[in-house]
Amino acid sequence: MLASHRLSLAWIGRGVEIERKFVPCTIKKGSEMIEMRYEAPRTLKAAVALLAAANGRAKVLAGGTDLLIQMRSGRIDPELLIDVKCIPELRTIAEEKGGYRFGAAVSAMELVEHEGLARMWPGVIDAVKLIGSIQVKGRATVGGNLCNASPAADSVPALVAAGALARIIGPGGRREVPVEEIPAGPGLTSLRAGEMVVSILLPKRPQRSGDAYLRFTPRTEMDIAVVGAGVNLTLNAKGVCSRARVSLGAVAERVLLLPDAAAALIGQRVDAAALERLAAAASAACRPIDDKRGTKEYRIKVAGVMARRAAQIAVKRAKGEV
């Protein structure tokens, strides 16, 4: 019997989870008796032990919205799936030092519906809201979005602009790294053998701060960023920008943090001229490729536009206008 009848968007697509039995099992693949194991450890220690023992043939399963598609398409063929959704540290959102720490397996919809976090980091939530459909967000996780290491991941530029820190655990213990250091290239992370991301910390922020994320996609939704831009800034009492972080997605092999673009804002009133310098710096930092989702030339131009428009929203939020 369910204790509560909470009906919210966060539960759409997660119905199965309510009654799921996390039974380790072996799945036969083909007739060659190649086997794939599924494990759902309940502690970090057990997860790390499984991961370390698998010699790189294991995959961590959180929401599975990228992993299962990659398995179905034949792009990856793991021997072990480690489902991390039963580990409490990966499933909680908690206040920490005036900011918020959330587990790597917290679903996107749980973040969207967390009032405190959404109020403090609206730009991060802008980005999380753009991941897939509501149904997909019911399963997809920000930890997975980060570790899938797509240059076009929506939540990552927003986290990078926010100055988020990732907590990593592995055979060598725990360590904390800035989020921007995790993706290394398409599908590649800087995580060492046997390591996984446990949680992400969105730090406390000063007064008069605002952040925003904008992406460009040909469709209005259900699409992948051609360019994504995250801006996080703080204004002083006179309305001058005192701190800023700017990041771009889908314009390089990984999400970029752009100090030069941030410098165009710091010490400025964020007027039209500063915004133009920001846009120029953002475009200059791009090193995109031509692919089916957009041309090089197009991405470079639109990166500046998205960065400028995101900064305008961030300023309004810092001023409390929206």
Binding site: P218, R219, T220, E221, M222, D223, I224, K292, R293
Partner: peptide
């Protein structure tokens, strides 16, 4: 349809073959 120089279709799926969604 996006074909590579090798004549292979590069976008055989609804993610990159963009039919309109309701909000479009």
């Amino acid at each position: 349809y996006v074909y590579g120089a090798d004549g292979v279709l590069q976008n055989p799926g609804f993610l990159d073959y963009r039919v309109p969604v309701a909000s479009d």
